[in-house]
Design a protein around this nucleic acid. Structure first.
Lengths: 155, 155
DNA sequence: AAGTGAGTTGGTCTATAAGCCGGATTCTGT
DNA sequence: ACAGAATCCGGCTTATAGACCAACTCACTT
């Protein structure tokens, strides 16, 4: 799952996974994807199930009453939407309104998909453009000094 | 058990566990859940029995005269409410008034449920909204420097 | 230029949650 | 101890949101 795509959301907020990504998922025998918030930027991340399993178990094992850790857990785990799909279908997935609002795509028709190998990201077209050209985004969510324990982790 | 839900309490303070969570509990052969206070924030935590067993035994084994530890034990263990449910029903559970007051949902119709994998949390909708957007909550309970012994634990 | 595959849209149907209601059990007061 | 009342618990009905299905259009390929 690599590369850039511009696709459209329909009026119901549904996204059809592009064929390129779809075939990757099928080849890897994935049957579920998980959509959740990106803790740093106003965007969404989409993981195949196996990948999600890694992420979430790492995150859940981060114990502690540290507010930053709890924030990460809330953001990523607490907003995860698990979606099971039929490999034969078009993989039409409904992105929950809460997540659409977060990524600022609730009233957008066009959105950007960015393939990152084992996951892909969903961006507001304008925000992605700004990020590419070094402009400032409408919001940057997590802007704190991370504890060493999680600095080296990827989500 | 992942993701965000807004559900309603009925006039008597009862909560119907959402189907998403319900199926997870059934799959894991759980028949009891434990509701208790979150020591840090005005919210409640709901554990399936097996998970609770881990948490509570860790917490009970913490010996010492440290006031913070005793506080944690009082808050978490002392407020735990064990609820047995029928896997065939809607899993309607009555949240004790004391706990409803604590989470500031005693006169609320809508509440937020946040799935955290092996547990989920119950929040006042407004408090959750504030937390998400970085605003301040009506109360933050435990805001102290934690001893090393419990810093690494999660409840 | 036609056919195939992908993207998009709309409609329908089912599963789930919310509200209502009645029965049962417990607690209290006499 | 018994009766009344209040609280707790399960079932039933209705409305709605989400999942499924099918068709249409556009673009690309041969």
């Amino acid at each position: 799952m690599y590369g850039f795509n511009t696709v459209s959301l329909d009026q119901k907020g549904r996204l059809a996974i592009p064929a390129k990504y779809r075939s990757c998922l099928i080849d890897a025998n994935e049957t579920k994807i998980i959509i959740t918030k990106d803790p740093q930027y106003p965007s969404l991340k989409v993981y195949p199930e196996s990948q999600w399993h890694e992420i979430s178990s790492k995150l859940e094992s981060l114990q502690g009453l540290d507010p930053i850790v709890r924030n990460l857990q809330w953001t990523i785990l607490g907003n995860a939407s698990v979606i099971e799909f039929d490999p034969n279908s078009r993989m039409l997935v409904l992105i929950p309104l809460e997540l659409r609002k977060y990524a600022d795509i609730s009233d957008q028709k066009q959105i950007s998909l960015i393939g990152m190998g084992n996951k892909f990201e969903i961006w507001n077209v304008n925000n992605w453009e700004m990020r590419q050209t070094g402009g400032s985004l409408s919001t940057e969510i997590l802007d704190v000094v991370l504890p060493e324990s999680i600095k080296s982790m990827s989500f």
